[in-house]
Amino acid sequence: MRIGVIAIQGDVSEHVESLERALAERGATAEIVTIKHKGIVPTCDGLVFPGGESTTLGRLILREGIDEEIKQAKEKGVPILGTCAGMILLARAGDSQVEKTHQYLLGLMDIRVNRNSFGRQFESFEIDLDVSVLDSPYNAVFIRAPAILEAGENVKVLASIDDKIVAAEQDNVLALAFHPELTEDMRIHQYFLDKLFC
């Protein structure tokens, strides 16, 4: 078992540490690798997109040429987790802010996203969030977070704040507007790992 964390920019080490902790919790082992360049994605059984700046991440994924490898992994059914900037990259379409920067999108999920949906850093927040697949609220950290404005019928909504969808999945792809890698509660990472260890 091999899990790759896209390591172009962002909070990569936090995701690596969270995966290690979550694996230890369930008594499982897997190799965790960081991905900066071509050739590693096809060897992975699971993929994680960290938080970071989506504009930067999108540009560099293209420049490094790993975009096609990620699309192929999705087709093969490899479980993929995207947090914050990762959610934006997974989307099919974005709002005018996303378009303005010619943001590159992988289009792996039938969702339309809105960048900085809750405002600037001043308005970033923590909230006890109800997530449909968890039995009690989850302390979710939103940092200049995006949100899903529209989701296709094949998309399963897992959590919302008012009319904004903040967690969703479609087939093997899980997208979150918040950062489970910044807190000690491993339930979201476990939910993702369930897809690999089923």
Binding site: G10, G52, H179
Partner: peptide, 15 residues
């Protein structure tokens, strides 16, 4: 919160 402030800085890593 401290988590949000430090978290913001973490998102800049590698940049």
């Amino acid at each position: 919160t401290e988590l949000i402030k430090r978290g913001f800085a973490k998102m800049q890593k590698g940049g």
